[in-house]
Structures are given as C-alpha cells and as structure tokens.
Simulated scan of single mutants.
Amino acid sequence: MYEKDDPRSSLTTATAPRPDTAAAIAAAQYFDLRTSSVVRAQNVVLVHTEARDGDDLDNGTLEGELAIIVTAASPAFTVLTGDGATLIDAPGLVVVPPGASRIGVRGDGPLIRLVEATEPAWRDQAANADAYAEDHPRVALLQRWPEPVGKPGVRFYPLSEVPDDPARFGRIFRTRAFMVNFLPEQDGPRDPRKLSPHSHDDFEQLSLAVQGEYVHHIRTPWLADSTRWHEDEHVRLGSPSVAIIPPPTVHTSAASDPGVNQLIDIFSPPRLDFSEKPGWVLNADEYPMP
C-alpha cells in the first residue's frame, strides 16, 4: 500500500469494519466547486465561497463547531461571535464554537467552511443532498469527540507555526467532528511510479484540491453481486474541487499540473489511526481523544 519512506506505512488499523460489509459500495463523487459550492458527505457539509471584500457571511446558529479552512489565497476576515471579534489574516484552521457566528470579509478569495451534516441550515443546501437521503451503511456515523480543553472561544491554528516534517504525514488538526490535513504543496506532477493506493474500512475521505490539478484513481472491490460492480475510474479535476471517496474503495490521487498542486484531506469523524501517532495531530493538547 505505502512505500517504506511514507509515514503512513507504520499506521495501525483505525477501526474494525462495519458489520454490513455485504452492502452496496457507494459511488465516488466529484465536484467542481466553482459550480457546486455546497456539497456533503455523510457526516460533513463543505461550503466553498469565493468571498469578496465587504461580504458578511452568516454561518447560522450551529449545534456543533464550525471549521474554516484558510489557504494562501484566502482573504483576511473577522469571525464575529457573541464573545466578540477575532481577526484571521494567515493560512491555517479556524474552529468556531457552537452557536451563532458571522464572517466579515476583508478582501477577495476563497473560504472553505465545514459544518456537521446534521445542521438543519446546511444539510439540504448541498448539491448532492439526494445522495444521502439515506445513510450509507458502510460509513460510520459521527459521534463527537470530547470537548476541547480550556475556555470556549474561537481557536486559530496558523500553518506558519508548523513547518513541514517528512516524518509526519502533512499538517493535521482536529476538532470534535472533523480532521483536516494540509498536505504539502507539490511542484509539478507526481511520479507515476510512486503512488499510494490504499483503502479505508468505514469512513469517507474528502480530497479538496486548492491548487493545481489532480487525477483521482478509484477502484471498487468486487462483491458477489456482479450487477453492482464498477469500472475503474481515473477522474481529472482542477481546483477548486473535491472528490468524495467512499469506503472500501482503493484510491490514490496524483498531482498532474506542471505548476503548484495542493490537496487538503478532510475526514469526519477524526481518524483514530492518525490520532494515535505521536506528534501527528498538532492541536491534540486542546482536542483530546475519546
């Protein structure tokens, strides 16, 4: 599955497979976020906004935390809650506590918000809401992880404080409901001789392309019922885009643009196997494991 120099080669199995392993395997989903700005997986809704200076974005009154992915192309903005205003002006992950909040935008560029898929204000806005009219039996439902340590409030984890480390897989942060992995920027296409096909037993992966272009390679295992078989997929997507990869498909993504390419991987609930690796989750001191 992984080359020996890939940090993931030492991972242990995160969870036991869900009991319903005879259920149909869901199809992968692919979205150009310029035309489908709100999409969902089973446990998370992703909202992509091409924000403009002066925009006032209403997040609604949420039952769970809101996460905001801030990239190098994102504008500065202010998070407004009942406790006051927090200025964000650098790439990283912002976590907003439950309740009402707004975003005051101070420039032009993309902002990506993550909310739990049970939030009434967002779940039915997704372009692919019909795909989750019923829960996918192979995907574990979200059970929130423990409350964060310390006083409630807006938390910001800037990428500038965390240099890349080849011994660690990306730069990983978690909340009670999400795990976000900022993978390193890659110059030019990925070596086709060094891909990393792998699978997950019971969780979806959202691969968010924020720069460049990727080819998502997906192979669906055969079940006894051949009418449910799928052909291999090799889907090319530019940015911004997201691929929603279902379990237990074998998958790998290859950067293909000659310039800069970057993926951000999103999981809900947080991954236990990543969390068990010492030093991998960069805000583990504030967000404890179950």
Rank of each mutant, 00 (worst) to 15 (best):
D32F: 05
V47C: 05
Y214R: 10
R190E: 11
V210I: 15
D83W: 03
E50G: 09
R168V: 02
D164E: 14
S253F: 02
V39D: 04
R168L: 03
E276T: 14
W145Q: 08
A23V: 11
P91V: 15
P270F: 00
R193P: 00
D89Y: 03
T220V: 07
W122T: 07
I244T: 04
S275W: 07
D232I: 10
I264M: 03
D257R: 02
E134Y: 01
G279W: 11
R271F: 06
H48K: 03
E119R: 07
A224K: 07
T35L: 01
E50D: 14
D108K: 03
S36M: 07
H198V: 12
A22K: 01
D130Q: 10
R219Y: 02
L142I: 08
A127T: 15
P148R: 11
S253E: 12
P146H: 11
P248A: 02
P97R: 11
E119Q: 14
G64H: 13
G82D: 15
T227Q: 10
Q211V: 09
L142N: 04
G99D: 04
T81E: 09
P269S: 12
A255N: 08
Y132S: 12
Q211L: 15
R102F: 00
A26N: 09
R190L: 13
P288E: 14
D164L: 15
P19I: 14
V94G: 04
Y214T: 14
V260I: 13
I25Y: 05
V45W: 00
R171A: 05
D83P: 04
F274Y: 12
R168S: 00
V235L: 03
L282G: 05
T49H: 13
T175Q: 04
E276C: 07
R190A: 13
G170V: 11
D5Q: 15
P189G: 03
A14F: 01
G212V: 15
K151M: 10
V94W: 01
S36L: 05
I112E: 00
F77L: 07
S101E: 02
S74N: 11
P98C: 12
R271M: 13
E204K: 11
P288F: 14
D130R: 13
S37K: 12
Y2R: 08
T249A: 10
D135F: 03
R219S: 10
V38K: 04
P146S: 13
P184R: 12
L282R: 11
T71I: 10
T220F: 08
L141E: 02
I69T: 08
P192R: 07
A167K: 06
R228A: 11
F31H: 15
N283F: 06
T86P: 08
S196E: 05
E116R: 14
S9I: 15
M179Y: 04
S207I: 14
I266S: 06
D130T: 14
S268Y: 02
G238C: 09
T220H: 07
S37A: 13
I103P: 00
E65V: 13
P148K: 06
L237F: 02
T175L: 08
